[in-house]
């Protein structure tokens, strides 16, 4: 399959748009918002932390939907979406973890703690890294697609359940910015004024970046498949 010029131009436009948004978001993070009253400059990493988490969430969500759709329709495009979602999601959750650690060192005075939220993102990362290992380990392409869809679904179910279970313990120290706050968070702050503007702008930016990256990854996979087919054809002719 080859791509129409029009669609390529649309993707190119969105890509440049995402790049411009990212630059604007960084300018907002670094210059538009002032340093937070008690946490100071280190709080600026929060916008990327939450933005990349949103990106990971969207990408992994796409994988689960794609897994179910693949098992129902057996259309390989869903498998391509699935693998794109996992790769992009792994990248974003790595960013979430690293920015979180950078923030936690001065605020919590530790890089890592077995807090429910930290535990659940660590498990999420491991489960999807295992998904990539499974794909790498199965040679037959049809079987690989099937197994990847099955594992994507069961890993997600288990992940949801783990997240629910460890949240039952109320002793988290992770701040909750959106939604109800718990009794005793360490390092939370009030979201108002410029902080809110910056936060929403970053979330929007990261959502756009996620869509762009997944789209590029799907196209890359299609090109890889096409190259593979061409190679087979040439070999068959010889």
């Amino acid at each position: 399959m080859s791509y129409s010029v029009q669609r390529t131009n649309v993707l190119r436009a969105i890509t440049y748009g995402a790049l411009a948004l990212f630059v604007a978001a960084m300018i907002m993070n670094l210059f538009y918002v002032g340093p937070e009253r008690t946490q100071g400059e280190v709080q600026r990493v929060f916008y990327i932390h939450l933005g990349s988490f949103l990106g990971a969430f969207l990408a992994f969500g796409a994988t689960v939907v794609a897994g179910i759709a693949y098992l129902r329709t057996r259309n390989t495009k869903w498998d391509t979406l699935g693998v794109a979602g996992v790769e992009i999601g792994l990248g974003f959750s790595t960013i979430t973890i690293l920015t979180g650690m950078a923030w936690a060192r001065p605020i919590w005075n530790t890089w890592w703690t077995w807090d429910p939220r930290l535990t659940s993102i660590a498990i999420m990362w491991l489960a999807y890294a295992a998904y990539m290992m499974l794909r790498a380990g199965i040679e037959d392409p049809e079987r690989r697609r099937r197994f990847a869809a099955v594992y994507g679904i069961i890993a997600f179910a288990s992940l949801l359940y783990t997240v629910i279970i460890i949240r039952l313990r109320p002793d988290t120290i992770h701040p909750v910015v959106a939604g109800p706050t718990q009794a005793d968070p360490e390092g939370s702050f009030e979201v108002s004024g410029r902080i809110r503007d910056t936060l929403f702008f970053n979330l929007f930016t990261f959502a756009v970046i996620t869509v762009v990256l997944v789209w590029h990854r799907v196209r890359l996979q299609n090109l890889l498949d096409r190259t593979e087919r061409r190679k087979m054809e040439v070999l068959a002719e010889l």
Binding site: I123, L126, A127, A130, M133, L134, G137, Y151, I154, A155, S158, L159, Y161, T162, I165
Partner: peptide, 12 residues
């Protein structure tokens, strides 16, 4: 591969 796939899933 089996332990790698199994351990994250059986954590709950």
């Amino acid at each position: 591969l089996l332990p790698i796939l199994l351990l994250p899933v059986v954590l709950p």
